[in-house]
Each structure stands twice: as structure tokens, then as C-alpha cells.
Amino acid sequence: MIDFTTGELAQTACIWEACARKVGNVHRGADFANTALTDFLLSGAVIGPVLQHAGNRSVGATVFDAVERTQAVVGQNTNLGIILLLAPLAAEWSGMRPGVQVADILKGLTTDDTRLVYEAIRLANPGGLGGAPEQDVREEPTVTLLEAMKLAAERDMIARQYANGFADVFDFGVPTFTIAFAKFGSVEAAIVDSQLRWLAAHPDSLIARKNGAAVTEDVQRRAQAALALGGLETSAGRAAGVALDRHLRSDGNRLNPGTTADLITACLFVALRENMVTPSAPFRWNVSDWL
């Protein structure tokens, strides 16, 4: 049995997430006006080698290097959230820090990590980036990266993972994916099912930043309604999912649930790294009434 590297598993997670036909996202059947599937695939390819060596450098250095390489190949932000999530997870699992847990990685974050991450965020220039009352990314930080993430945890699901030790990933997202994979037998269906369940349970931070709480809660209710109709297991649930996809694409990509996509990528990486699923697992979901 081949022992895949951390970098290879990170690349696999990125490819799976990007290709799966998730509502409102770029996938193998839908591009955005200025962003194509190839942009996400290239982004996943270039960050793999960076994450492979995450254990012998700081989280901040890993994040900045990965963002800089992404900008060099696609010239836009396609994966900042993914990088922020995978950097501490890859540092734990790179094999270079035996016995170190992700909680230890987070506790060891420094002000220098904050400075490098802030620089990476400015370079990526993510959509909907506003100001913050404390420790704004445009200012010189005075707190550790963990402290900065705790300040943002109420408004950003990625920051929340730093604040709660990746509890949503480990306790909600990974089991949601593995249960769906066992049920449907394909990675793509498990990813799509996971996305609907993330959207139903947790308002998407990117949608919230661009559109406000009311619009975000409306998306959440639509995802809940699709699941109430049976989700991917029924024709009515799938039809509701297709309608949700049309709604999310009705105003350019302002309703793109990008943070949810980032969180799913982290869950896929964990599932791969823990051998809950393998890179050779069946991917394609064969169904005639989906996107």
C-alpha cells in the first residue's frame, strides 16, 4: 500500500473539492466569469509542495509562501481559506514534528505568524474584505495569530477553527463526509451532501461578508429545505438543490459559498490523512437530475 505524502493528500483534497458539482461554486460543469476550474486545479497543485514542508517552518511562512505561489499561477484569490485551514493541519501531519498535535501548533503561533498571514491576506485580497475594530489586517499586528483569529471567530468560520481547535472540522465536517461516502459510494456525492449540510448548519462567512446576515440566513433556510425534502436521496431534494444552485448564481458570484468550500477541503484532507478514504476512491456521482 502506497503511503501518500501530506502534499499529495492536500492536492487530492483540493482537486476533489474543486471538481465536485457543488451548488453555487465553480466545478467541472460551471465556471465563473473570471475564474475557471483550471484556476482552482492549478492553485491546488502549487500549494501541495509548500504544505509538504509545513512541519519545518512557521504557519505564517507556510501561508504566505502558498498564497504567493497561488498568485504567481492564477493571479487571484482562489484558495486563501484553504491555505489558512490546511497550514496548521499539515504542520501536524508532515512527519517533521512527531507527537505534536494541532492544538500545540495553534498554541505556538506568534506575532510573526500574524504579520505574515496579514501580508498574505493583503496579497490575496479576498472578496468582501472589510475593516476590523481590532487588529485589522492593514495594520501592524500586536497579538499572536491565535489571538487574532479569536477576535474574528464570531464573523468568520475559518478564524473560528483556529479558536476552537478545528472542532467544526473534526466533529461535524469529517463525520458528515464519511457518513455520506458510506451511503452514496462516491466522493462527489459525499462532498455535495456535505456542502448542503454545512450550509444548513452554518451560515457561509463569504456570503455574509458580501451580502449581510439576512441574505445569508435565507441561503441557510434554502439548504435546510432541500435536506427536509430528502436531500440527494430524493428527486424532490435534488430538485431543491438545483433550484438553490440557480439562486446562488443569480447575481454573478456574490452568493458563492466559498468559505463552506474551504471547510470541505479541510475535511477531505483530514479524511484522507486519517485513511478514512483513499485517493483511489470512486469519485463520480452518476445521477441524471443534478447539475
Rank of each mutant, 00 (worst) to 15 (best):
T5D: 04
T5P: 07
E8M: 14
Q11A: 03
A13Q: 02
A13V: 12
C14T: 03
I15E: 00
W16Q: 00
W16F: 04
C19Q: 08
A20S: 11
A20K: 01
A20C: 01
V23S: 03
G24T: 11
G29E: 09
A30D: 08
D31H: 07
A33G: 12
A36W: 00
F40I: 07
L41G: 02
I47W: 06
I47D: 03
P49G: 08
P49K: 04
S58H: 08
G60N: 05
D65C: 14
V67I: 15
E68A: 15
T70N: 07
V73G: 14
V74R: 10
G75Y: 09
Q76G: 08
Q76R: 15
N77L: 07
T78D: 05
L80G: 05
G81D: 00
G81C: 00
I83W: 11
L84G: 01
L84N: 01
L85T: 07
A87M: 07
P88K: 05
P88C: 04
L89E: 01
A90G: 09
E92Q: 14
W93N: 02
S94R: 00
S94L: 04
R97H: 03
V100T: 13
I105H: 01
L106C: 09
K107G: 13
D112M: 13
D112G: 12
V117M: 10
A120I: 13
A120D: 05
I121V: 15
I121Y: 04
R122A: 14
P126R: 04
G127V: 13
L129P: 10
P133A: 09
P133N: 10
Q135H: 13
L146A: 10
A148W: 06
A148E: 01
A153Q: 05
D156H: 06
R160G: 10
R160V: 11
Y162F: 15
A167D: 03
D168G: 09
V169L: 09
F170R: 11
D171H: 11
F172I: 12
T178L: 11
I179V: 15
A180P: 11
A180V: 07
A182T: 11
G185S: 09
V187G: 01
E188C: 14
I191G: 00
Q195A: 05
R197L: 10
L199W: 06
A200L: 10
A200M: 13
P203L: 02
P203Y: 05
S205N: 03
I207K: 02
G212H: 14
G212M: 03
A213R: 15
T216V: 12
V219M: 08
Q220A: 00
R221V: 08
A223I: 04
A223F: 10
Q224I: 04
L232F: 10
A236Y: 13
A239Y: 10
L244G: 04
L244C: 05
H247R: 12
H247I: 10
D251F: 12
R254I: 14
G258Y: 06
T260G: 08
F269G: 01
A271D: 05
L272D: 06
L272E: 04
R273Y: 05
E274W: 15
N275F: 14
V277T: 13
S280F: 12
A281E: 10
R284C: 04
R284T: 12
N286H: 15
W290T: 09
L291R: 02
L291W: 08
